[in-house]
Simulated scan of single mutants.
Amino acid sequence: MASSKNVVFDVVGTLVSYDQVFAAIDTQLGDRLRAEGIKPQLLGNAWIDTAEREYTNLSLSGKYTIFAEVSRAVFYRVLWMAGIAEPRAFASSEDLELIMQGFDSLTMRPGAVECVQKLRDAGFTVWAFTAGDRTRVGAYFQTAGIELSSENLLSCDSDGVGKPEPAAYRPLLERLLAKNEGKPPWFAAAHMWDVSAARRTGFKGAYCTVLEKEPLQELFGEMDVIEDTLPAMVDRIIAIQASD
């Protein structure tokens, strides 16, 4: 029998950290970047943020493009914006491909495996909704020893609508409302823009500060749960659901 309690996780940035991408940038370009006064992690965050913005803009304009293509395409633009006068002389195409491989080796954050198990022990069904490639993202769970069926791993690529467009969340919300006896399911993320959009669409929202530190509720609105660690966030979800 399907569970009437459901939690949907964002994956990359939430359950999975970007550390391997930052390490790949450091390995390939670290000395060159530091000589320009640029920290590799700062460049990495600027790159990911720019890629997310352009991925969203393309989707909004009706030209959905998979995230890996967007991130590869904007890399040299970000170097230029960081003050590198000749980006393609600064970093070779081989450098970029080796850095892109960092996305293939991303690993779960501390506490991620624990929080998935906590939810399952409490009778929740766990879902994952990503802007990434389903095969690559599915491998993150397999490597961590987390069983997740293909039915419970969804990607924006399938419908060609990117988060945070409301239309990206709505089909899954409607599906889970039926399973959840009409009660709102949970959406959990470490991107405030993501969980706040899901909450405005109709999910309950749980936010973890592990990635962004600052919730910025004055911009994104209230949350049902805000915690600093993934296990603490999950404990609050379980407690609130039990009291409903």
Rank of each mutant, 00 (worst) to 15 (best):
170 R>N: 10
104 D>P: 00
121 D>S: 15
91 A>M: 09
130 T>M: 04
91 A>V: 08
98 L>R: 15
145 G>Y: 06
138 G>D: 07
153 L>G: 05
134 R>L: 11
135 T>R: 14
116 V>R: 06
161 V>Q: 08
145 G>L: 03
120 R>V: 11
153 L>F: 10
107 T>K: 14
126 V>P: 08
157 D>H: 15
157 D>E: 14
114 E>D: 13
115 C>D: 05
89 A>D: 12
163 K>M: 11
160 G>C: 05
155 S>M: 03
102 G>D: 07
155 S>Y: 02
144 A>F: 10
96 L>D: 02
96 L>E: 07
167 A>D: 12
96 L>M: 10
162 G>V: 01
125 T>P: 02
116 V>F: 03
122 A>P: 05
123 G>W: 02
147 E>A: 11
155 S>T: 15
88 R>W: 02
141 F>N: 03
116 V>L: 13
99 I>E: 03
124 F>M: 08
113 V>E: 13
109 R>G: 01
108 M>S: 01
166 P>R: 01
163 K>Q: 09
110 P>F: 00
140 Y>M: 05
170 R>T: 15
87 P>T: 07
100 M>S: 04
111 G>V: 12
94 E>M: 12
88 R>C: 00
164 P>V: 03
96 L>Q: 05
126 V>M: 06
139 A>S: 12
106 L>F: 04
149 S>G: 15
105 S>G: 07
151 E>N: 14
135 T>W: 03
170 R>S: 15
137 V>E: 09
157 D>F: 05
166 P>M: 03
117 Q>L: 12
100 M>E: 10
113 V>T: 13
121 D>R: 14
144 A>L: 06
97 E>K: 11
101 Q>H: 15
159 D>M: 12
122 A>M: 06
123 G>K: 06
143 T>K: 14
95 D>M: 02
129 F>H: 14
156 C>H: 03
141 F>H: 02
87 P>H: 11
155 S>H: 02
163 K>T: 03
139 A>I: 09
161 V>T: 14
167 A>F: 04
139 A>R: 15
102 G>F: 10
137 V>T: 11
148 L>W: 08
120 R>E: 13
100 M>W: 02
134 R>N: 10
147 E>Y: 15
110 P>D: 12
139 A>E: 11
108 M>T: 06
92 S>Q: 12
109 R>M: 13
114 E>C: 05
127 W>L: 08
99 I>G: 00
117 Q>C: 09
139 A>F: 03
100 M>Q: 14
98 L>G: 01
153 L>N: 04
138 G>R: 01
151 E>R: 15
161 V>A: 08
105 S>N: 13
169 Y>N: 11
138 G>A: 10
93 S>L: 15
102 G>Q: 07
123 G>E: 07
102 G>V: 05
87 P>F: 00
95 D>T: 05
97 E>P: 06
122 A>K: 02
112 A>D: 04
114 E>M: 06
97 E>N: 14
130 T>P: 08
157 D>K: 01
163 K>V: 04
136 R>P: 05
151 E>H: 14
